[in-house]
Nucleic acid binder design. Structure first.
Lengths: 232, 232
DNA sequence: CGTGCGCTTGACTTTTTTCAATAAAGGTGG
DNA sequence: CCACCTTTATTGAAAAAAGTCAAGCGCACG
C-alpha cells in the first residue's frame, strides 16, 4: 500500500482533497515498533503526532511507585499525541506498543503549515480532539463517581455493544491491562469478576471469554443504582 | 464595552482580523446568569459554546447519589462547552454559575461557517482543546494514582504559583467545592488539612487563608514520594 | 524443561466514606 | 437589629472499599 493510499483511508483525513493528501504523504514518516516497545516518554519533546496503522498502542501515566493508569488504548486509524502538537509541545503521557505496530508520523511544523491552508483538516482535527475530551470526561466521572464494580460493568456493556455476539464477549486486554484501564489493580479486578460470577451477573469462561447473564443488573451497577453483594 | 471590544480581548480570538471580529460580534449573544443558576444540563442539546466574561462557572458531573465531581472551574475569558460544537452535539457535563456571571454565546452553525474560512481561529481553538485535554489527563492521573493528601498538596502548590504572596495563599473555592474538585468529600478534606497542619506542613488560618510552611514536604507528597503520618 | 508471567485467592492494612452530632457563619425577613 | 434557618465546617466512631503482601497454580515461551 502506498503512502497516499494509506493516508486516504485515515478518517482524520476524510474530505481532504487529493493534492493535500499528496502534501501529507510528503511529510509523513512511517515508523514501526515491536511489541512492548516504548514510543515516547511523558515529558519528551513532541516533534509531531502519530496515526496508528496497525497493532495497538497504550497511552498511560505512571505513578512513582510504578502503578499505571491507561488513558486510552489506540486502535488502528486513530491518532495519538495530537494535543502535543497544538499545546505544550511535550508529550503529556507515555506511549507503548502493545503489539507490533506501524504508525505514520507527521512532523509538527509541516503539519501546522498544511492545516492552516486546509480548513477541513482543521475541522476534522477539532472533532477528533473533542471526542477525546468527552471520553476523558467520562473516564474522570467513572474514576471519581463509581466504584470498581460499576466501572467494570460499564466496560463490559461497552464491549458487548462493539462486538457482534450479543451476550458473549471477548476481553480485548489482559486482566492486568484491563485493571490499569479501570483505575485499579489485578487483584481487585479478579475479586470483582469472581463476585459478579457468584451473583449470577456474568459467567467467566476459559480464556478471555465472558458471557453476560444479567444485563439489567449490570446496567444498574454501571449507573450506580445497585451494589454488589446486595439483594435487589 | 461594545461586543466588538469584548471579543477582541478574548484570547481565543487573538490574531483574528478586524472584519472577522465583526462577523463574530454579529453571531454572539450575551447571556447573564445569577449565582447558582444552571447554565446547561448534561445531555442537553448543545446549540453552541460559551466564553465567560465575568464571574465563575463550574463544569461538573453528578453521580446518581448526588456526589459531584468538578471537571473544571471556568475563569473569565475561558471558553466552555466547545467540545460539544465539534463532536456529539450534546453537553457532556453540567454547568452552573458559581457567582453572578456574564457570557458570550456563539451558535454552532454560524461559528462553524466562520472557522472554516479563518484558519487562525481554528488553530486557536485547537490549542484551546489541546490544553484542556492535557489538564484532563492530569486530573485522571491525580484521581487514579495519588491519594487525597497528594492531590491536595498538588493543588496548594498550584495555587501558590498563581498567587503573588509566596507562601500565603487564599483558597479560591469553598471546602465543599474544593473537595469536589479533588474527587473527595468535605469530611475527608477537613481531616487531611488538619493532619497537614498537625505535621507542620501548613498553617490553616482563619477564613480561607493557608500558609505553606514546608514546601519541600508538600512537593514530595504531591509526587507520591512521601505519605502523611510517616516520618521522613 | 524450567523460568516467568498472568492470574487467582487469602489474610491483613490502609484509605476513604458514611453516619451522626455539633458548632460556627451568613443571609433573610420580621 | 435580632432571631431564625440554611449552609459550611469539623470531629468521632464505625463500616466499606480497595490496596498490599504473600503464596500458589498453570500456561507459554525461550
Amino acid at each position: 500500500m502506498t503512502l497516499i493510499e494509506q493516508i486516504t483511508t485515515v478518517p482524520l483525513f476524510r474530505g481532504v482533497r487529493r493534492e493535500q493528501c499528496e502534501a501529507l504523504a510528503a511529510i509523513a514518516v512511517e515508523k514501526t515498533y515491536a511489541k512492548s516497545q516504548n514510543i515516547f516518554l511523558e515529558g519528551a519533546d513532541a516533534a509531531g503526532f502519530y496515526v496508528l496503522r496497525s497493532g495497538r498502542v497504550k497511552i498511560y501515566k505512571l505513578s512513582p511507585e510504578g502503578k499505571e493508569q491507561i488513558l486510552h488504548v489506540i486502535e488502528p486509524n486513530d491518532t495519538f499525541a495530537e494535543a502535543a502538537v497544538f499545546a505544550g509541545h511535550r508529550f503529556p503521557a507515555h506511549a507503548d506498543a502493545m503489539e507490533a505496530s506501524k504508525t505514520l508520523f507527521f512532523p509538527r511544523q509541516a503539519f501546522l503549515a498544511l492545516i492552516e491552508r486546509h480548513p477541513s483538516l482543521a475541522l476534522n482535527m477539532l472533532a477528533d480532539l473533542s471526542r477525546r475530551l468527552q471520553r476523558f470526561a467520562n473516564l474522570i466521572e467513572s474514576l471519581s463517581l463509581k466504584e470498581v464494580p460499576g466501572r467494570l460493568a460499564a466496560h463490559l456493556l461497552y464491549l458487548s455493544e462493539r462486538q457482534d455476539d450479543r451476550d458473549e464477549l471477548v476481553l480485548d486486554l489482559s486482566k492486568v491491562q484491563l485493571a490499569s484501564l479501570l483505575g485499579t489493580i489485578p487483584e481487585t479486578l479478579s475479586r470483582v469478576l469472581a463476585k459478579m460470577a457468584r451473583e449470577g451477573l456474568i459467567e467467566v469462561q476459559e480464556g478471555r471469554k465472558i458471557r453476560l447473564l444479567d444485563r439489567e443488573s449490570l446496567e444498574e451497577l454501571s449507573t450506580g443504582e445497585r451494589r454488589l453483594g446486595t439483594a435487589t
